[in-house]
């Protein structure tokens, strides 16, 4: 289980770093092509725009490991620490449910998109680019279920404002 998690973490970290690097390099390549060679490559622009989506979801997945998401935490500031588990249990279940809901419909849609076989651009199939959405929300849903379980045994990380 821990080994599996460690692998997942490594894949996420590696992917997000790779996507960011590609983003910088491709964008600069496009600038050089346009200004010095008077041309541009068709596939760079859509690829860069999809990279934003990937970075968004990968980043969000990583942020869910320790629940470092933006929130308005009125209750945890007002209530003493000993009541916090009651808050997190409800909140984690809700978040897991919402993520699961999105993941469920998202999977369905991406399968359909696969069957429609629409290319997003060039030869890249659009279902592949979209697949990060169901994957991301599934992983987030699982992480919030885990957080919920950890809270039951009193091992959940403190609910906190995001720490980057």
């Amino acid at each position: 289980m821990t080994a599996l998690l460690r692998w997942l973490h490594r894949i996420e970290d590696g992917l997000i770093v790779a996507v960011l690097l590609f983003m910088i390099l491709l964008a600069v390549a496009q600038i050089v092509l346009r200004n010095f060679f008077g041309t541009s490559l068709v596939w760079i622009e859509p690829l860069l725009q999809n990279a934003v989506l990937w970075i968004g979801l990968l980043g969000a997945m990583i942020a869910s490991r320790k629940d470092e998401h933006i929130r308005i935490d009125v209750a945890s500031t007002l209530l003493p620490e000993k009541y916090h588990p009651f808050l997190t249990i409800g909140v984690d279940l809700f978040t897991a449910f919402i993520c699961g809901l999105v993941a469920w419909y998202s999977v369905g849609f991406v399968i359909e998109e696969y069957e429609y076989a629409t290319p997003a651009f060039a030869e890249v199939p659009s279902w592949l680019l979209q697949a990060i959405i169901p994957v991301g929300f599934t992983v987030m849903a699982v992480r919030y279920v885990l957080l919920f379980l950890m809270a039951l045994v009193g091992k959940r990380p403190r609910m906190q404002e995001p720490v980057a």
Binding site: R34, F37, G38, T39, S40, L41, V42, E45, P46, F121
Partner: peptide, 18 residues
């Protein structure tokens, strides 16, 4: 993001800016 015009540009041997 427009395949059709990209193809046309290729056929006309243009190097457009997208």
């Amino acid at each position: 993001n427009d395949e059709a015009s990209a193809k046309a540009a290729k056929a006309f041997e243009l190097s457009p800016i997208m």
